[in-house]
Structure formats: C-alpha cells, structure tokens
Design a binder for these strands. Structure first.
Lengths: 205, 205
DNA sequence: TAGATTGTTAATCGATTAACAATC
DNA sequence: TAGATTGTTAATCGATTAACAATC
C-alpha cells in the first residue's frame, strides 16, 4: 500500500497531540481531529494505514498510540545527525533545542572555512569538509542537514551520498539531484516567503 | 479559477530557472521542465493559470517570463519584514543573505529578553515586544517571521494579527490558529526530520 | 509549407471525505 | 441492549498527465 507523504506529516502532529494529553486514557478520532486541526475521517484513515490501533465504540488508547506513532515515525530511538555548513543557519540549527528534545543529536559538524575548523560549538567540534567521508562512514551516520551556500550544495550532497548517508534535509536553494534511494527533503526559505508575497499580491488584483 | 498552492511553489522554481539563463532569448516548456525537474505539461499548465505568455511554435520569451513571473509572485517590489524572536534561529534568519537578495528586507526585530533590547544585529535594532503593535501599524508591515519558543507563538501571532499583519512565516512548532484572511505558513523542522526517520524506519520493516 | 510548440480540454491518477457495517 | 466509535469501502474532489487542435 502506498501512503501519502502528507499522511506522515499528520502522524507527527497526531503524535504531538496525544503526547500533550495527561488527563485521559482513551481518545476518539474525533477528539484527535479537533485538537490537531483535521477531520475525524482523516485521522482514522491515516492511522489505518499503519495498523488497527483502536477499539470500536471506545477509541484509541493514548498509551498505545504514543508507543505506536513513535515506532511509525522511527523516533522510538535516538538518531545521530551530521550538519554540513556552520554559518548563520547551520549554527542556529546546531543550537536548536527542539532537535535534541525529539531525539535528534547533532553530533558531527563540518565546514570548509579554515577559521572555523576545530572550534567547538554547542559541544560539537567542527571538522574540515575533507574529513566528511571518513567520519560519516566510520560512524554510520544516516541523517545529514545541509546548510551551505547554494553553489556548494550539490558537491556536498554528492559527497554525503558517496559516504553512505541515507537521508538529507537540505536548506540550500536550487534543488539538488540525488538518486531515488536517498530521501532528500528541501526546505527553501525564499520559496516559502514567495508563497506569502504571492498571496499578498493576489489580493491586490 | 482556483490555483493549486503547489503550482505557486513551482512558479518560484521556474522563475529561478529562467533567471539563470543567459545565452538564449526564448525557451520551451520542455526545456524549463528539464531544468526545473518537472514535466512540460505541468509547466504549461502552471503558466496558463496566470495568462498566455508563450508563442505556439516558438516557446516563451525569457525576458517576458522573468518580468511576468516576478509580478505573479509579488517580487517585482521590495517587502519590509518584521522578525519576532531573535534567538538562535531568529538571528540566523536576520543574517540570511538569501532574503535580502530576493527583495525581502528584515527591517524590524522584536524580542522579550531585556538583555537584547536596543542591541543592533545586522543593522537592525531589537525592540521590545511591547512595541510590536505600534511599530507594525505605523510602518504598515505586511509580513512577519515568527521564531519564538512554541509557548509564546500563539500570543505573538495574535498580537501580529491585531496589529494588521497579513502574512506570517512561523517556525514555532504546534500550528497556531489564525483567521482565514491571514496567510499563515508553518515550517516545522522537527516534522521534517521525522519525515526522514519515517523513511529510514520504513526501510527496515 | 513543414516543423515546433503553445494553450486547453479530456483522461487519469491520487488523496480526502462520507457513509456505514462491524463491534466494543 | 443502546450508544459510541472504529476500520474500511465507495463517492467525491482536486491535481497531474496526456492528447491535440490552433498557430506561429
């Protein structure tokens, strides 16, 4: 069965929703929907992609849901993450508390600026980009965050792939190319802002 | 006619694609598609939502496309942007060169940390959150970026809306509520990372 | 004129919503 | 048993792709 990728994002939101519930043991799809901002049918459908977690007439056990959703998302364990590019954005991501909190540990950082090499940021030593392949391989790192200028992005991503990385969160604009078996997710801040100005502009026509 | 929101994001990518072309006067939907990574049919369809920009048998004038796409996206002018929250992420966004380059000027910054108030970052003076309403109103700011901790997000967004802001790019998790007429776009870094771990996890089942 | 390529309509595909039998 | 709510199937909606007449 193929699962819509938007369904996966919603599972993340359902997970946060049930995490926040402290005063109940069981919750209905209707209530999850209300709290997370979707429809009850959508909640049931999304959950049903992954199994039968509920009890007709009663709802979903919150305890079970917490456990199962974590499993689905792969956040029932911790993940080591490498970050490439420790400029403004990279440093901010390195310092971002939210990641650690969700079980993502940025343990490795790389940059090509000689002035930054061997400096320690947030407890992480910045390594030269030349060390990337060896370090990623030796430590079997699965996830990388790319926060380099766009000119460097494709090269860095090629290096990461050659080093055995499996999933990449890329902040550099100009969507780089990667083979099918790599999960490459682009976050392009300018495109997001342009969606806003499109909306503002449109109102004026 | 209602235009898919994914179409707008693609328009941004088409715009970048044609911007990068220097050696031709005219380009076909086929070539745009190839460069931007979509199908020719999709390119023509997306462009057709907004007008007839091409010439059958010849293609699209690159000059015209640059002008028209900019107009569609609302980036044929500069926009003043306010940022709320000048922590790690907020500071990085304030320093991000890409915005300025696309015509987005972050001219106003707000924070509630007394130690930061009146400090200058990237040429922008950090103002107390209490000044938000007055400043946003007086300067008719349309766009705000929210980079505060999630506990504060809803309050900040309510303040922005009350101040007349029209579009918000929100980096705080826990999707806040906003009325229909406000364009609220959420970027949730943890959800993106969870899409990656879902993918990694899935491979193991 | 022949070849190329648009703009648009129709066909397909995929995702969301609605409905309801099964069941606690 | 009656009421509630799931899991799933069918209906609807929306977006993408394919096809092609119009036209440069």
């Amino acid at each position: 069965m193929k699962i819509p990728s938007s369904s996966v994002s919603r599972i993340s939101l359902y997970y946060r929703t049930v995490l926040a519930i402290k005063d109940k043991k069981v919750i209905s799809s209707q209530d999850i929907a209300l709290l997370a901002g979707f429809s009850a049918a959508q909640v049931r459908k999304d959950l049903a992609y992954f199994g039968q977690f509920g009890t007709p007439g009663r709802g979903y056990s919150i305890e079970l849901l917490k456990k199962e959703l974590k499993k689905i998302l792969g956040t029932d364990r911790e993940w080591d993450v490498a970050i490439v590019g420790v400029g403004n954005l990279g440093s901010a991501l390195l310092a971002y508390k939210g990641f650690k909190h969700q079980g993502f540990n940025i343990r490795y950082a790389f940059d090509n600026d000689a002035k930054k090499i061997n400096k320690i940021k947030q407890g992480v030593r910045i390594r030269p980009i030349q060390a990337l392949k060896q370090v990623v391989k030796a430590n079997k790192i699965d996830i990388a965050i790319v926060a380099v200028p766009h000119e460097a992005a494709q090269d860095v991503i090629d290096m990461l792939i050659a080093s055995g990385i499996k999933a990449i969160l890329n902040f550099a604009p100009r969507r780089p190319k990667a083979p099918e078996y790599i999960e490459l997710l682009n976050i392009d801040l300018s495109i997001e802002l342009e969606r806003l100005t499109y909306f503002l502009q449109r109102g004026k026509r």
